[in-house]
Simulated scan of single mutants.
Amino acid sequence: MTAELTGHQELPRTDDLPSLPYRLGGVLRHVVRPYFRLRYDLTIHHEDRFPRTGPVLVAPNHLGLLDGPLLGATAPRMLHQLGKIEAFGGLQGKILHLAGQIPVDRSTYDVLAIRKAIKVLRDGQVMSIYPEGTRGRGDFRKVRVGVAYLAMVTGAPILPVALLGTRLPGGDVERFPPWGSRVDVVYGTPFTVDRVPFPRRHTDVRAVADQIGDVLRAHVQAAVAATGHPLPGKPEKKDPDE
């Protein structure tokens, strides 16, 4: 029995799940990337910190509508991203599914979405999850337990990402910033937390989430200081799905 198969049979098991598609996602990345570089004054900082092999748990802050498409198009590797289930309807939903993205029902404990995310990491791929859970100030003042749980189950390194300029100060979370806007993507230093076998108590996961939050907050503060690009503050319109 291979080590990979053994990993998939640990709780929660993922050996019964098919691998997520990625080819369309790879094509879309290459098509959309030049568009974003043309539309925005885009600077990528410390891209060399992005691990080129093995599982990676990408942890960006969440400011606005641009975050997911921008990071998916410009990251050095193909990203599988968790997205709210409301975005997976109609033609857009079919494209997102074929591009290897994972819908998550935020109104409940979505076991299938979590298992799919774990499988991505166990397969040595890149999983992106917003630790804040929804669009807002982007300062990581509140970090949900999902990122901690995935890290504790898989042992995947966590890569902090500070997105700056994806929403203008006081801007609407449902709108893209205007043409020519300055946008900075700042990668942090990957770090790990201890891998914990089943069972994992909620109190322990919450404690690890708080520790991760400390690292993420420090990273976004350092990114703001280094770039001189401030966070936009409170959004004009609250995310209707919060």
Results as ranks from 00 to 15, higher is better:
167 R>M: 04
167 R>E: 10
168 L>G: 02
168 L>S: 11
169 P>L: 00
169 P>W: 00
169 P>D: 07
170 G>Y: 08
171 G>F: 09
171 G>E: 07
171 G>Q: 08
172 D>K: 15
173 V>T: 14
173 V>Q: 03
173 V>G: 11
176 F>E: 11
177 P>I: 00
178 P>A: 04
178 P>L: 01
179 W>P: 07
182 R>S: 11
183 V>C: 03
183 V>R: 13
184 D>G: 01
185 V>H: 10
186 V>G: 04
189 T>M: 12
190 P>C: 07
191 F>L: 01
191 F>K: 13
191 F>Y: 14
191 F>P: 03
192 T>W: 02
192 T>I: 03
193 V>A: 13
193 V>G: 10
194 D>T: 15
194 D>S: 15
195 R>A: 11
197 P>L: 03
197 P>W: 15
198 F>N: 15
198 F>M: 13
200 R>K: 13
201 R>P: 05
201 R>Q: 15
202 H>V: 13
203 T>Y: 04
203 T>H: 11
205 V>L: 11
206 R>S: 11
206 R>P: 00
207 A>G: 05
208 V>I: 12
209 A>Y: 02
209 A>S: 14
211 Q>C: 11
212 I>S: 01
212 I>N: 03
212 I>Y: 06
213 G>R: 01
213 G>E: 06
213 G>F: 08
217 R>H: 06
218 A>I: 01
218 A>T: 09
219 H>M: 04
220 V>E: 02
221 Q>L: 03
221 Q>M: 02
221 Q>K: 10
222 A>R: 15
